[in-house]
Design a protein around this nucleic acid. Sequence first.
DNA 1: ATGAAAGCGCTAACAT
DNA 2: ATGTTAGCGCTTTCAT
Lengths: 334, 334
Amino acid sequence: MVSIKDIAKQAGMSPSTVSRVVNGKKHVNSAKREQILKLIEKTGYVPNKAARSMVLKRTSTVGIVIPDTFNIFQRELFSIIERNLESFGYYTLFFFVKFEDMSEENCLAKLKGEQPDGIIMIHEVKNAAFYDYLAAAGIPVVTSTFNYPGIFSIHVNEEQASMEAVNHLLQLGHRKILMISGDGFTFGRQRADGFFQALAAADVPWADDRVVFVRHYTAEFGMYGMRELLLRNRDFTALFAATDELAIGAVRALRDEGIRVPEDVSVMGFDDIDISNYISPRLTTIRQPIKEIGEQTALVMHRFLSRSDLPGSGKEQILPHRLIIRESTAALAR
Amino acid sequence: MVSIKDIAKQAGMSPSTVSRVVNGKKHVNSAKREQILKLIEKTGYVPNKAARSMVLKRTSTVGIVIPDTFNIFQRELFSIIERNLESFGYYTLFFFVKFEDMSEENCLAKLKGEQPDGIIMIHEVKNAAFYDYLAAAGIPVVTSTFNYPGIFSIHVNEEQASMEAVNHLLQLGHRKILMISGDGFTFGRQRADGFFQALAAADVPWADDRVVFVRHYTAEFGMYGMRELLLRNRDFTALFAATDELAIGAVRALRDEGIRVPEDVSVMGFDDIDISNYISPRLTTIRQPIKEIGEQTALVMHRFLSRSDLPGSGKEQILPHRLIIRESTAALAR
DNA sequence: ATGAAAGCGCTAACAT
DNA sequence: ATGTTAGCGCTTTCAT
């Protein structure tokens, strides 16, 4: 591995001069600069990140905390964040939190060793010690797609969005509406809350057994959830699933019972993942402004880190969602 | 940030002793060891990775090169690899290659700075300089899901798998079979080759315009590809898509024209991504042994790195695929 | 068994 | 404008 010393020696100059060139500092004779640049090109020299971090006491790295089982929506989100972070000159480090005991602790230990300059959380870690450590260590944190007290958060208004989803169903004439959500994260509860609120606002009587909370927000669990609901009571005409993947699984379970979507039952999703526009029926859903969320997340982090401009007065940024009406919902027959 | 010196000072010992304890070396008085361990626990000390890498000249980090636009199959794969790598004690670093000029160079530069101990490639980088650098730098490389001359590769037999897919269609009585593949990567060409070979072996006449190569292996491009094919010639009864996502998009395009799957046209996918078993119709596809591929990839890398056991004589490991028959294919209606 | 000292590659203060 | 020096946190000889 060619080091700064090698370059210096070959150029007959000191390491400092080379360092100045590498970092684009002023006060270097332009002829020498040229020469060094040429040498760098020739040798393929690239500064050693570890060495640099050590003296600078920063790593130029942003950690992204994300569930090991990230869904398609999260996958798209972190791609966008990564891209934007890169454009600001940061490296990205992923911390995958697994669905296991100790995984959060594990992740925290890793994080301590890696010392990222900032942390973006796309996953809601349960252990408060996690946030406490970050706060104590003075590491800037931004949460994306959920909010955590005291932390800068970028997300949509989940309740509001859910209410709109349910209102869409209500406007279509549906009254007997079911919901599948998850109990894992705050957004699952928020989306369920929006569901309850919308129903209450419309004076639609509603019973406890019309909602089921499953363990994961996947198609597989959507199918299980729907089967459970089907077992309980078959008198319904619409379903609101807390994520598109859940919706896809639910549609599967419905079809397996010979129930047609949307002719017999309307189904709403949430997230508008890529595939939702291609499957049959195309899913009616709520779209989160994923691009904006990703861009804002990276931008806010950059501001924290560069201190060029502290994020606005507030502690959260709420971005607008949008109802996307497609084929999986229809007016109540008759 | 608490350092090894802090611990040493508090314990009234030297940094060397602390280092020995941290690294579980012998030759430390067990009472002192206890005391230090307690102190580490208390202070939450975690060794600084950068400092350690610098003296050790290794980072305990494995880089994973993956396309920015990774599909669901790749997402699952790298999750598995990451998990397994972690169990061997490695950190994982992701290098996302974007679909842009210079992105590979960019990625290579990053890689040089990060100095991972090994590289796992899930993405087939085009630029030979990439592989050349890795070889010259003596960094072990393992390619997963594709093979590259001279590099240890773990993958299925793509041609063979495609032939089986096509044979399934042939056995169902189909003769007029179309294909959608991509031109981006080797596997796209290999899967197309398998298609041609199977047709040739069965003496099925075939024309050039029955295959289309699209730019990305996504549902969106599957839809475009199918539309193109539909424009050319509507006389066909089956389609083989090089990935499940392509297949999903193709089914969309077919349906938009009122063509039923599988009643009018049978559709085969490849990869068996999660969602394929939930959508309608459930996709008939080829399953890659994703878990085994991921585990083997991590294991082979570990062997390279620990030198405990060099990977077997060969340079590749071919894992068995499997035909998964579901609902999107059916016997040719008379 | 333990400590002192050197050095990994780099940057920044300080000289010149 | 450029070089010299110290030091970031760690591990590893080499003494003792």
